[in-house]
Design a binder for these strands. Structure first.
Ligand SMILES: [Zn+2]
Length: 552
DNA sequence: CGTCTTTGACCTGCGC
DNA sequence: GCGCAGGTCAAAGACG
């Protein structure tokens, strides 16, 4: 970071110099020279200041990092506590929290199809294995276990499953899990615990087929959703054989550059650091949803541009993308949508977000004006289901290394910045709207728009939210939370790389820009005791715009 | 050869 | 009961 800052800072200075120079150009040689000297001095002074500033910023960043980590710790503590509590009430359920369906599988279901039975058996085995070595994922489980619900199977109770929030692009998880196997006993259980399965969808500008979130996904299906020409792809987490987490990926019908991924479930295994951001984001968001299910109040937090809308079951989400879509709604599952797109190109309702966002946030030089803000609002008053917009504008950025920078590895940092620079310099056009001339601005933009960063940020925010409001108070606007406890954030550089999130492998999104140098794939940093993950496999490329596959 | 993706078939829930 | 739509399965192909 500093490097980038410094560089850009210097450049900025130089530019200024030149500008000044030209403006005085005609006045005379002496003066000119004199002025030049003067300017040189002042420039140097400025540089010095900039350096100092950088130092300061660095300090801020470090501090924020620490804060973030502390918060994270606290959050997880809380989560753990809650988990324990819930354990008392629902022991058995707990054990299998993540995979109720699997459980049921082992119990067997009534289906007459032999094929399924086989599968059931197989799954049962996996399940067992899983139990044996079940590790609580950093971010995982808690939401599920906390409420006692089973996440997977439980959703059927309410007859009202229909589409929901994101019809637009189609992120709707249907009523249930789908494994035909789930049935019988589990159902009963799940019914006892009316669990709403929380889903978290993330909208990101990304022109690559998938957004690399650090996890390994395996595609198991693809379908064309009704209102969207783009196929929807279904992925399942393969980090652990029995991990119940699934995600749907689909491009926004309106703006194909927007990738919408919807996550469901929580990981029942440790995750690579690079994946924790998204995972914690989703689980935190999910928990938040679950805990505050009925209160959909909103607490507009401020003015910087983060909007976080919660959608609750009763609300009738009107996806921005489909202004008029007649969505059936009444989703029985709460869904959170993190809108990390800059919403530049697509018109429609997106601009709502833009309004909120302060364009200067990114483009202005070392953005001292950022004041992060979170808005919680209910759908009812908002046409948008839930969206989280992170700073404004700037589309396509695909670098995923962001967070790793600060504390993780120098190389990564350099790498990251390098790519950033490349991106911003080589692809000034990547931003359809504003084209920052200023390197800093570009870098800032790039950083903030980076999916990793965004997810990291999301994670951080949601974690914070989760720990603060998740408890139950959630409803009203008392979610005053500040990022990094430091309300002064505003005066610092947009917390760009503060959150440790990140994925180093984010190539998926960045590949096109970074061109191949996407070496590192899964980061080996684990927050938890490392497991032998195959680290280099993720190759899931997929949906894009490919063919459709049989819808019926 | 093992793993992953593709993709048509199949399953399930829902509305009519 | 029928058709629709979303989700999943699993054989076959692609890839390394
Ligand atoms: Zn997983």
């Amino acid at each position: 970071m500093e490097v980038a800052l410094r560089k850009s800072g210097e450049e900025g200075v130089i530019k200024q110099e030149r500008r000044v120079e030209s403006s005085i150009g005609e006045d005379g040689c002496k003066e000119k020279i004199f002025l030049k000297d003067n300017q040189l001095e002042s420039a140097n002074a400025e540089m010095g200041e900039v350096r100092e500033e950088n130092q300061r910023l660095r300090m801020y960043l470090n501090r924020m990092m620490k804060d973030y980590q502390n918060l994270q710790m606290q959050f997880f503590d809380i989560v753990n506590q809650e988990t324990k509590e819930s354990t008392n009430t629902a022991q058995s359920d707990q054990e299998m929290t993540e995979e109720p369906e699997l459980v049921s599988l082992s119990l067997g279901r009534t289906s007459s199809d032999p094929r399924k039975d086989e599968k059931a058996i197989r799954k049962g085995k996996e399940d067992q294995q899983d139990k044996e070595g079940l590790a609580l994922g950093l971010h995982s489980n808690f939401e599920v276990s906390k409420t006692g619900p089973i996440d997977e199977s439980s959703i059927k109770p309410s007859p009202e499953n229909s589409q929901e929030v994101n019809k637009e692009a189609g992120e709707s998880w249907p009523p249930q899990k789908g494994l035909k196997t789930v049935r019988s006993e589990d159902d009963e259980i799940s019914q006892h615990n009316p669990v709403k399965k929380a889903r978290v969808s993330v909208r990101v500008r990304c022109d690559t087929p998938t957004m690399q979130d650090g996890c390994q996904w395996r595609k198991y299906g693809q379908k064309i959703a009704k209102g969207n020409p783009c196929p929807r792809a279904y992925y399942r987490c393969t980090v652990a054989p029995s991990c119940p987490v699934r995600k749907q990926v689909q491009r926004c019908a309106e703006d194909m550059s927007i990738l919408i991924s919807t996550y469901e479930g929580t990981h029942n295994h440790p995750l690579p650091l690079s994946a924790t951001a998204m995972a914690s984001t989703t689980s935190a968001a999910a928990s938040m949803l679950l805990s505050s299910s009925s209160t959909s109040e909103t607490a507009p937090a401020s003015s910087a541009g983060l909007n976080f809308y919660l959608s609750n079951h009763n609300s009738k989400p009107r996806p921005f993308y489909l202004p008029n879509s007649s969505i059936s709604s009444s989703p029985s599952y709460p869904t959170i949508t993190l809108d990390l797109t800059s919403t530049t190109s697509s018109s429609s309702y997106h601009n709502i977000n833009n309004k909120i966002i302060n364009p200067n946030f990114l483009s202005s030089a070392p953005g001292y004006n950022s004041s992060p803000n979170l808005n919680f609002s209910s759908l009812e008053s908002n046409p948008i289901p839930i969206s989280w917009n992170s700073y404004g504008t700037q589309p396509y950025n695909k670098n995923n290394q962001i967070g790793s920078s600060l504390n993780f590895s120098r190389q990564a940092q350099e790498n990251f910045y390098t790519s950033l620079m490349q991106k911003s310099l080589l692809n000034p056009n990547s931003t359809q709207q504003a084209q920052p001339q200023d390197t800093i601005a570009a870098a800032t933009k790039a950083i903030t728009s980076d999916p990793s960063f965004q997810s990291a940020l999301a994670a951080a925010l949601t974690s914070i939210i989760g720990s603060n409001g998740g408890g139950g108070g959630g409803g009203g606007g008392n979610l005053g939370f500040q990022i990094g406890k430091n309300s002064k954030l505003g005066e610092t550089f947009p917390f760009v790389s503060n959150f440790p999130s990140t994925s180093q492998n984010g190539n998926k999104c960045s590949s096109s820009y970074l061109n191949g140098s996407t070496s590192v794939t899964n980061s080996q940093l684990f927050l938890q005791p490392p497991l032998p993950f195959p680290s280099s496999k993720s190759k899931s490329t997929s949906p894009g715009g490919g063919g459709d596959h049989g819808s019926d």
